[in-house]
Design a binder for these strands. Structure first.
Lengths: 346, 346
DNA sequence: GGCTTTTGTGTATACGTATACCTGTCAACA
DNA sequence: TGTTGACAGGTATACGTATACACAAAAGCC
């Protein structure tokens, strides 16, 4: 087993000193073309790769960004992480995913502050999470993506959830729905709170009230959405439409409807939020609110770069405007007229 | 902005030398209880966190394992990564996800050999990928999970795909299907090859032939499965059952069937492979082959630990046995008798 | 109470790279 | 031809931790 090859080995083979190797390999000025060529040749021959540990220690920078997220089994987050990764790679940073709740314990603050990362992107932060403040105190640059804090302690980039919810309420009003069920997300998340409040406000503006007995709260999972939907659908007078905290919950509602033999959209309208790819599959054809995660990622990374360069600047907040996507799970309330056809044959 | 606090700062505050701090914080023998207490107190007061860069450089070990995988937007991989992460965390390792094809280029070999990781787990390797050999040459311990190589160059842990495919063929034969469509995975993946061959062998054993005109090949995506299914379903005599390379492809087939107004399972039986969580949703209720990814992860990590401790031992191969899961997308061929009911109401 | 053995802690150094600084060479210029 | 300056490349050191080794003090032994 050959010992790991270092820049000293390359230097010896090329007949130069170690710093010259460092300069030549990075194309810094102050190296003659001939020497540079000899160094490159030697490095190639030895299959030399610069040690990330040595470089990081010496440069006081790892060129790595941590993305903190709940388990990736929620299909929304890979969709958010991928454009973030791409955007960061484009700027020369590697991305590292850090699980939010490793085996039940909250995220290890130490793991984020041990110098492994130049910055942190938080994606599943709760409204009152102490994590951003902790990171600030320890001097780790960070921004929030997707979710926001109650207090503007950090720069953040989110979706304009109120605007999205308003579009949903406009659609439901236009379709004549009045008994509207709501399965909102967790209230300790900004998305859960903003979407629920935006929907209530939008419906109120159309003269429609949201009734407490038709409202449920569920974490962002299929099973929670399914369970909540069963509760609503077995009521004496079930809702004619169910608005969900996000798409995954909406998929749970569709599962519940399937189990009860309720036809969507004929007997029940279901609306999601996020527009994950699955929502666009003909099998699902979910009417939902589309969020441009490319734009969200671009803006988030921009904000992070700003934090890295100007750590003391005041935090800012940005919003991406979403748009309604009409697919196959909405229809006018029964007896009210025509029903849109299901997805067309391609 | 306070300068990053080091073990020297802690040492000064505690009135000891830097090495004593190192020893005390790690509970090494050779430190008196009184001194240890003073050091811990000082570390707490300064909110000291051991620098990962310094420790890694000094210890020649990062306690990090890289998991190389295609984009996480394929729902299978988060399901595999999560138990791997858990298993590795249990043994004191952090996990880092490395994208297989960052922006189109093959995975950066340098990124895996720059000393950032103590070992590598490859999850989406092709049958003839040069990556394992390269890693061996550069002395980076590694194992394969899920997929295998043609040449046994590395330790690996996979599913017994042939056994799973045989169970599928037994089921189809029992249901009376004879015109069987196959949408197999990429032939340059071991999973694609083994499942297709296993199915053909199993059916042949039951006196059923797999016809070339009913066979398609598709990458492991929903859209590819959907397109292939449309091809098969618009044939003059379409198949009565379609066996898919994996669940995601099967979901594409279900989408295509929905688009064409074909009823599953009455008019078409669809079989997947993997049993991703989505397959169990009542909305989908996919009949498929279940793979125990917990077991796969446990075995994989075991193999990797063995590589870390005995780098020169010969590679080994392990297989996890899968099992058929009967849900709602299979039925006896039409006109043959009774049809199993769809999923029951809960 | 002299001897060895153990124990606690400090000193020196390694890990692999990057960079401030210094030196020597050579071209340009008067 | 002596002076200046640019430039190539070497020397020394920093980054933050871990550990081999030295050394002094304390403890055990007769």
């Amino acid at each position: 087993m050959p010992r790991k090859v270092t820049s000293f080995d390359v230097a010896r083979l090329a007949g130069v000193s170690q710093p010259t190797v460092s300069r030549a390999l990075r194309n810094l000025p102050g190296t003659s073309p001939g020497t540079r060529e000899r160094v490159l040749e030697a490095a190639r021959e030895l299959a030399y790769v610069t040690s990330d540990r040595g470089r990081s220690l010496s440069m006081r920078s790892t060129q790595r960004i941590a993305i903190v997220s709940e388990e990736l089994t929620n299909p929304y987050y890979p969709e958010l992480v991928e454009p973030l990764r791409r955007e960061l790679a484009h700027r020369g940073y590697r991305t590292v995913l850090v699980a939010d709740h490793a085996d039940g314990n909250p995220v290890g603050l130490d793991a984020l502050t041990d110098g492994s990362y130049d910055g942190v992107i938080l994606t599943t932060t709760r409204r009152r999470s102490p994590l951003p403040r902790d990171l600030t105190e320890r001097g780790v640059p960070h921004v929030l993506a997707n979710r926001l804090l109650d207090q503007p302690e950090a720069s953040c980039c989110g979706i304009d959830n109120a605007a999205g919810a308003r579009q949903v309420s406009d659609l439901l009003a236009a379709l004549g729905h009045e008994r509207i069920g709501v399965i909102q997300g967790p209230v300790d998340t900004s998305t859960g709170k903003e979407r629920a409040e935006g929907l209530a406000a939008g419906l109120r503006g159309r003269g429609i009230g949201v009734r407490r007995e038709l409202t449920r709260q569920a974490p962002y999972t299929h099973d929670a959405g399914r369970a909540a939907a069963h509760e609503l659908l077995r009521l004496g007078r079930p809702p004619t439409a169910i608005v969900c905290g996000n798409d995954v919950v909406a998929l749970g509602v569709l599962s519940a409807a399937r189990e009860r033999g309720i036809s969507v959209p004929v007997d029940l309208t279901v609306i999601g939020f996020d527009d994950i790819p699955m929502a666009g599959w003909p099998l699902v054809a979910l009417t939902t609110v589309h969020c441009d995660l490319q734009a969200l990622a671009r803006m988030t990374v921009e904000l992070l770069m700003d934090r890295l360069e100007n750590p003391d600047r005041a935090p800012v907040e940005r919003r991406i405007r979403p748009s309604l996507v009409l697919r196959g799970t909405h229809a006018a309330v029964r007896g009210d007229g025509r029903v849109p056809p299901p997805a067309a044959v391609s």
